[in-house]
Protein backbone atom coordinates (compact mmCIF):
# COMPACT_ATOMS: atom_id res chain seq x y z
CA UNK A 1 0.00 0.00 0.00
CA UNK A 2 1.52 3.24 -1.08
CA UNK A 3 1.18 6.42 0.88
CA UNK A 4 0.10 9.37 -1.18
CA UNK A 5 1.12 12.82 -0.01
CA UNK A 6 -1.66 15.13 1.04
CA UNK A 7 -2.76 17.55 -1.60
CA UNK A 8 -2.66 20.96 -0.03
CA UNK A 9 -3.70 23.88 -2.17
CA UNK A 10 -2.15 26.57 -0.03
CA UNK A 11 0.53 25.26 2.33
CA UNK A 12 1.13 28.68 3.82
CA UNK A 13 -2.47 29.00 4.89
CA UNK A 14 -2.42 25.61 6.55
CA UNK A 15 0.78 26.53 8.34
CA UNK A 16 -0.74 29.76 9.61
CA UNK A 17 -3.79 27.90 10.80
CA UNK A 18 -1.71 25.33 12.64
CA UNK A 19 0.44 28.01 14.22
CA UNK A 20 -2.68 29.76 15.44
CA UNK A 21 -3.92 26.57 17.03
CA UNK A 22 -0.58 25.91 18.68
CA UNK A 23 -0.62 29.45 20.04
CA UNK A 24 -4.10 28.87 21.36
CA UNK A 25 -3.04 25.66 23.10
CA UNK A 26 -0.02 27.35 24.63
CA UNK A 27 -2.18 30.13 26.00
CA UNK A 28 -0.21 32.63 23.96
CA UNK A 29 -1.78 35.81 22.66
CA UNK A 30 -5.22 36.26 24.10
CA UNK A 31 -6.48 37.78 20.86
CA UNK A 32 -7.24 34.78 18.69
CA UNK A 33 -8.88 35.15 15.33
CA UNK A 34 -12.33 33.77 14.84
CA UNK A 35 -13.15 32.39 11.38
CA UNK A 36 -15.38 34.57 9.21
CA UNK A 37 -17.11 34.02 5.90
CA UNK A 38 -14.99 34.65 2.77
CA UNK A 39 -17.23 37.69 2.28
CA UNK A 40 -15.28 39.60 4.94
CA UNK A 41 -11.81 38.67 3.70
CA UNK A 42 -9.65 41.79 3.66
CA UNK A 43 -12.36 43.78 5.37
CA UNK A 44 -11.86 42.79 8.95
CA UNK A 45 -10.71 39.96 11.16
CA UNK A 46 -12.76 38.98 14.15
CA UNK A 47 -10.57 38.68 17.22
CA UNK A 48 -11.73 37.27 20.50
CA UNK A 49 -12.38 39.82 23.19
CA UNK A 50 -13.60 42.43 20.71
CA UNK A 51 -16.90 44.16 20.21
CA UNK A 52 -17.96 44.69 16.60
CA UNK A 53 -20.82 46.81 15.38
CA UNK A 54 -23.10 46.05 12.46
CA UNK A 55 -25.99 48.02 11.02
CA UNK A 56 -28.24 45.25 9.76
CA UNK A 57 -29.54 41.85 10.77
CA UNK A 58 -28.05 40.16 7.73
CA UNK A 59 -24.54 41.38 8.54
CA UNK A 60 -24.95 40.26 12.14
CA UNK A 61 -25.88 36.76 10.97
CA UNK A 62 -23.07 36.74 8.41
CA UNK A 63 -20.46 37.61 11.05
CA UNK A 64 -21.62 34.74 13.24
CA UNK A 65 -21.88 32.27 10.35
CA UNK A 66 -18.13 31.76 9.94
CA UNK A 67 -17.65 30.64 13.53
CA UNK A 68 -20.81 28.54 13.43
CA UNK A 69 -19.57 26.68 10.36
CA UNK A 70 -16.24 26.10 12.10
CA UNK A 71 -18.08 24.15 14.81
CA UNK A 72 -18.49 26.87 17.43
CA UNK A 73 -21.67 27.72 19.31
CA UNK A 74 -23.25 31.08 18.53
CA UNK A 75 -26.04 32.98 20.19
CA UNK A 76 -28.49 35.76 19.40
CA UNK A 77 -29.88 37.92 22.17
CA UNK A 78 -32.61 40.47 21.86
CA UNK A 79 -33.73 39.24 18.43
CA UNK A 80 -37.47 38.93 18.68
CA UNK A 81 -37.74 38.74 14.87
CA UNK A 82 -35.05 36.17 14.11
CA UNK A 83 -35.35 34.92 10.53
CA UNK A 84 -34.50 31.24 10.95
CA UNK A 85 -34.46 30.43 7.26
CA UNK A 86 -32.21 33.39 6.47
CA UNK A 87 -29.78 32.26 9.17
CA UNK A 88 -29.79 28.78 7.68
CA UNK A 89 -29.13 30.19 4.21
CA UNK A 90 -26.27 32.27 5.56
CA UNK A 91 -24.63 29.08 6.80
CA UNK A 92 -25.41 29.21 10.51
CA UNK A 93 -25.76 25.72 11.98
CA UNK A 94 -29.10 25.94 13.75
CA UNK A 95 -28.41 23.01 16.06
CA UNK A 96 -25.54 25.00 17.58
CA UNK A 97 -27.47 28.22 17.94
CA UNK A 98 -28.99 29.62 21.12
CA UNK A 99 -31.66 32.28 20.82
CA UNK A 100 -32.87 34.53 23.61
CA UNK A 101 -35.55 36.57 21.83
CA UNK A 102 -36.53 38.79 24.73
CA UNK A 103 -33.95 38.97 27.52
CA UNK A 104 -35.95 41.75 29.13
CA UNK A 105 -34.49 44.04 31.76
CA UNK A 106 -31.67 41.63 32.57
CA UNK A 107 -30.31 41.71 29.05
CA UNK A 108 -26.82 42.71 30.16
CA UNK A 109 -26.58 39.79 32.61
CA UNK A 110 -27.98 37.41 30.03
CA UNK A 111 -25.44 38.58 27.48
CA UNK A 112 -22.64 38.12 30.00
CA UNK A 113 -23.83 34.59 30.76
CA UNK A 114 -24.05 33.76 27.05
CA UNK A 115 -20.59 35.17 26.41
CA UNK A 116 -19.27 32.73 29.01
CA UNK A 117 -20.09 29.69 26.91
CA UNK A 118 -20.65 30.81 23.32
CA UNK A 119 -18.03 31.93 20.84
CA UNK A 120 -19.98 34.64 19.06
CA UNK A 121 -22.94 36.44 20.60
CA UNK A 122 -24.94 38.78 18.40
CA UNK A 123 -26.77 41.31 20.54
CA UNK A 124 -29.45 43.81 19.73
CA UNK A 125 -29.41 45.93 22.88
CA UNK A 126 -32.93 46.96 23.93
CA UNK A 127 -31.55 50.05 25.69
CA UNK A 128 -28.42 52.18 25.63
CA UNK A 129 -25.56 50.90 27.67
CA UNK A 130 -23.28 53.05 29.77
CA UNK A 131 -19.52 52.96 29.36
CA UNK A 132 -18.96 51.24 32.71
CA UNK A 133 -21.19 48.26 31.97
CA UNK A 134 -19.65 48.01 28.53
CA UNK A 135 -16.17 47.89 30.08
CA UNK A 136 -17.24 45.07 32.41
CA UNK A 137 -18.57 43.12 29.48
CA UNK A 138 -15.35 43.81 27.56
CA UNK A 139 -13.32 42.28 30.35
CA UNK A 140 -15.59 39.25 30.36
CA UNK A 141 -15.16 38.90 26.59
CA UNK A 142 -11.38 38.91 26.88
CA UNK A 143 -11.42 36.45 29.76
CA UNK A 144 -13.72 34.03 27.96
CA UNK A 145 -12.26 34.48 24.45
CA UNK A 146 -15.57 35.36 22.90
CA UNK A 147 -16.73 37.90 20.33
CA UNK A 148 -19.66 40.26 20.76
CA UNK A 149 -21.41 41.59 17.68
CA UNK A 150 -23.76 44.47 18.40
CA UNK A 151 -26.52 45.72 16.15
CA UNK A 152 -27.16 49.16 17.59
CA UNK A 153 -25.38 51.63 19.80
CA UNK A 154 -22.33 50.61 21.78
CA UNK A 155 -19.80 52.89 23.45
CA UNK A 156 -16.61 51.47 21.99
CA UNK A 157 -16.38 49.12 19.03
CA UNK A 158 -13.28 47.58 17.58
CA UNK A 159 -14.79 47.97 14.14
CA UNK A 160 -18.13 48.86 12.66
CA UNK A 161 -19.30 47.14 9.51
CA UNK A 162 -21.99 48.83 7.48
CA UNK A 163 -23.57 48.26 4.10
CA UNK A 164 -23.40 51.27 1.80
CA UNK A 165 -25.14 51.65 -1.52
CA UNK A 166 -27.47 48.66 -1.40
CA UNK A 167 -28.77 47.65 -4.83
CA UNK A 168 -31.36 44.90 -4.98
CA UNK A 169 -31.51 42.86 -8.17
CA UNK A 170 -34.45 40.99 -9.59
CA UNK A 171 -37.23 43.43 -8.86
CA UNK A 172 -39.05 45.64 -11.34
CA UNK A 173 -42.24 47.64 -11.25
CA UNK A 174 -44.62 44.85 -10.32
CA UNK A 175 -42.54 42.05 -11.84
CA UNK A 176 -39.86 39.63 -10.74
CA UNK A 177 -38.77 38.87 -7.20
CA UNK A 178 -35.87 39.73 -4.96
CA UNK A 179 -32.83 37.72 -6.01
CA UNK A 180 -29.70 39.21 -4.52
CA UNK A 181 -28.26 42.48 -3.41
CA UNK A 182 -24.98 44.09 -4.28
CA UNK A 183 -23.61 46.10 -1.44
CA UNK A 184 -20.50 48.07 -0.70
CA UNK A 185 -19.37 46.92 2.71
CA UNK A 186 -17.36 49.40 4.68
CA UNK A 187 -15.45 48.65 7.84
CA UNK A 188 -14.54 51.60 10.01
CA UNK A 189 -11.92 51.10 12.66
CA UNK A 190 -10.86 53.86 14.99
CA UNK A 191 -7.58 55.40 13.90
CA UNK A 192 -7.60 53.84 10.47
CA UNK A 193 -8.96 54.69 7.08
CA UNK A 194 -12.24 52.97 6.24
CA UNK A 195 -11.88 49.79 4.18
CA UNK A 196 -14.43 49.19 1.42
CA UNK A 197 -15.24 46.05 -0.49
CA UNK A 198 -17.91 45.03 -2.96
CA UNK A 199 -19.97 42.04 -2.00
CA UNK A 200 -23.08 40.13 -2.96
CA UNK A 201 -25.35 39.33 -0.04
CA UNK A 202 -28.23 36.92 -0.31
Amino acid sequence: MSVRPLEIADPQQVLDQLRGRIAALQGGPSRLTVPVLPLFDGLLTLRTGGVYGVDSATLGMALAAGASQAGEWVGFAGWDDFGVEAAHQQGIVLSRTVLVPAPGEHWLEVTAALVDVLKVVVLRPPATVDAKSAAILDARLRARSAVLVVQGDWPRCEARVAAERVAWAGLDAGRGRLRERRVTLVARQPGRAPVRTEAVLP
Binding site: S56, T58, F82, A86, R177, L178, R179, P202
Partner: peptide
Amino acid sequence: PGPAPSRVFA
Protein backbone atom coordinates in the same frame (compact mmCIF):
# COMPACT_ATOMS: atom_id res chain seq x y z
CA PRO B 1 -38.72 31.94 -3.47
CA GLY B 2 -35.31 33.56 -3.28
CA PRO B 3 -33.38 34.75 -0.26
CA ALA B 4 -35.22 34.43 3.01
CA PRO B 5 -35.96 37.55 5.04
CA SER B 6 -33.57 38.10 7.93
CA ARG B 7 -36.23 39.62 10.16
CA VAL B 8 -39.54 37.82 10.52
CA PHE B 9 -42.08 39.55 12.70
CA ALA B 10 -44.09 37.34 15.00
